[in-house]
Design a protein around this nucleic acid. Structure first.
Lengths: 242, 242
DNA sequence: CGGTTCTTTGACGAGATTCAATGCCGGTGG
DNA sequence: CCACCGGCATTGAATCTCGTCAAAGAACCG
């Protein structure tokens, strides 16, 4: 994926995996009016409580959805890879119930919510693809509840990395052999419900177990089967979306 | 709600709150063919990995969705009140990614998935209502990630009870003044990611704080404002569905 | 009324947090 | 080109929350 691709390329690629689109469907998607933007890491794209007029599509880079607890603690509730629609959650609701932030420098394509809504209501195949996307998103969210609720810190971190690798792989932006992680250890902690310090210790433990290798922000998974086993990772919940 | 009501009564009531339905929409819903069943507490209604042919609507009683970790630990990922469609998650996916169980004795209305799918695709208002239902479901799931990821045990339990009271209230089956809880303490623990023993301690702490009162399975919230504050509960994430 | 499930309590231990300090790396400007 | 600076990673020690184990008591159901 380069930033010179049409913003719809990654979207069409993703939707096609979710439901069979015909030529007219793809043309309809191409006719959406996009506004391209390049944003720096940590840019806030959607703020809780607001109702964005435009819908943002992640073309390149990584993003996260997060919520803030009353004590100020942040919980990341999902991360996103190129091709993901970042606020499909708000297409049919009045206000955003969470924040969306860029994790890395990113390329975003903005398109009016109204156009997307119309497409979903008028073209059954596109509607079906978005339905499936939303349902898979919900499935991932349930897996995250299990992850933070039931697994110990080491498995949690491993599970999050497994999902990241699997989804990046599906989006064509990385392989288990070697990946650049966009996350700081603080962000991994915010996603797994543990502290930065403890994330560091767990990464060290995973390295000492011979499951992963790290240099800088690069991650190499030494033992993909063993890593998934320790994480309790079973890609079924991704519903073949990865 | 009594079991002699039509199974669609609670469903129509719920959908009407989500999108304006006209007479024809309501007639279409009434024309769905239902099979009514009474099940005992703990009955499994949907099993992970299967693809149910029928869709189950909760008419009376309570239910939960849950997942099982590889070490055998169970995580409840949501609970449900009368009027909820229990496996809308699977309408457009090939296999269930979680279990559904009755929490209490319950009345279930089964209707063919195909009929419901057709209704959603053919009647825009009904489609919209189900879209909103699914998106609100996802919003609740995100809040649960925050709950188990970021809050301490006392707040977690309190938050879960706040949501339960709010949703029961909206479904017309209870008030904060006095409610019958369907959950065992083990189930509260499975939903909040803590052990049964610790749930018991936290309930005692909440009682000693003067926030709640208990006798048997009955719960009375003494200080609803203080209770919500301690829980960090803000009903915004329910999107006016409660 | 007998058995089962659920609740309650105490003592102890493990896992994760907190606090604090140091080291490292990349970027920026002199 | 090097020195400095800020963000991020790493580590140790003390502390605390929550889990584990075990046992007894209460409530419920057939």
């Amino acid at each position: 994926m380069t930033s010179t691709d049409s913003p719809v390329t990654s979207l069409v690629g993703k939707l096609r995996r979710l439901a069979p689109l015909d030529m007219e469907d793809e043309q309809a998607l191409s006719s959406l009016s996009f506004r391209i933007g390049h944003v720096r890491a940590r840019t806030c794209l959607v703020r809780e409580g607001t109702m964005p007029y435009d819908c943002c599509l992640l073309v390149e880079g990584f993003a996260s959805r997060s919520k803030v607890a009353s004590d100020g603690g942040r919980q990341i509730v999902s991360f996103h890879v190129p091709g993901d629609v970042l606020d499909i959650q708000h297409l049919f609701l009045e206000r955003a119930d969470h924040d969306v932030h860029a994790i890395s420098d990113a390329t975003i394509a903005w398109t009016p919510m109204s156009q997307l809504r119309a497409l979903i209501m008028e073209r059954p195949a596109i509607g079906m693809a978005f339905w499936r996307d939303a349902l898979i998103d919900a499935s991932i969210s349930r897996e995250w509840v299990l992850n933070v609720g039931r697994r110990n810190a080491k498995s949690r971190v491993a599970h999050m990395l497994c999902e990241f690798v699997a989804r990046c792989n599906a989006a064509g932006v990385g392989t288990p052999e070697r990946m650049k992680l966009p996350f700081t250890q603080e962000e991994i902690g915010d996603a797994t419900g543990i502290t930065t310090v403890h994330v560091n210790r767990m990464l060290r433990a995973l390295t000492e177990d011979g499951l992963i290798r790290r240099d800088g922000r690069f991650l190499e998974i030494e033992d993909w089967d063993g890593f998934q086993k320790l994480a309790g990772f079973d890609k079924g919940y991704l519903h073949a979306a990865a």
